[in-house]
Simulated assay, not measured.
Amino acid sequence: MSSSSTPALSVLDLVPVRTGQTTPQAIAASMLLAKKADDLGYRRYWFAEHHNMKAVASTTPPVLIAAATAHTSRIRLGSGGVMLPNHAPLIVGEQFAALEAIAPGRIDLGLGRAPGSDPVITQLLRRSGTTSEAQQFPDHVRDIQELMSPEGATVRFTSGGTYAVTATPAATSSPTVWLLGSSDFSAQLAAQMGLPYVFANHFAGEGLERAMALYRQGYQPSERHPAPESFVTANIVVAPTEDEAFERALPQMRQFARLRTNKPMRPIETIDEAKAAASDALEDSFIEQMRRRWFIGTPTSVAQRLREFAEKNEVAEIMVSSGDGAYADEPLDEPTGRAQTLELLADAM
Rank of each mutant, 00 (worst) to 15 (best):
P221H: 07
R260G: 03
S285I: 06
T122Y: 10
R292K: 14
Q192W: 03
P61Y: 01
S183M: 04
M53N: 06
W46P: 01
A234R: 09
R126F: 00
L14H: 11
A213V: 06
Y215P: 07
V63R: 01
L125M: 15
A57V: 11
R293P: 04
R126K: 02
S159I: 08
S30H: 01
L189C: 06
G207K: 05
A310P: 08
S321V: 13
F157I: 08
M83A: 02
R260Y: 11
F137P: 00
S4V: 09
R291T: 15
V17E: 03
H50F: 03
S322R: 00
L33R: 12
R210I: 08
Q255N: 14
L9A: 05
A303K: 02
T19E: 15
E311Y: 10
G325D: 02
Q289A: 15
S285Y: 00
G41R: 12
E229L: 12
P221M: 07
T154D: 03
A310F: 02
I296W: 02
D243T: 14
K54Y: 07
E311L: 09
L40K: 13
H87L: 13
A227Y: 06
K312D: 12
P331T: 10
P150R: 14
A167N: 03
G80E: 01
K35Q: 14
Q220H: 08
T168I: 04
L282E: 14
M212Q: 15
P331I: 10
Q145N: 13
A57G: 09
I236W: 00
L90H: 07
R293G: 02
S279C: 11
A239F: 09
S149W: 06
P299Y: 00
T22P: 10
E223S: 11
F199D: 04
P85I: 05
F199N: 01
D118R: 12
T154A: 05
S183C: 03
G129R: 04
E244M: 13
R74M: 05
A114K: 06
G80Y: 02
T59R: 04
A101R: 14
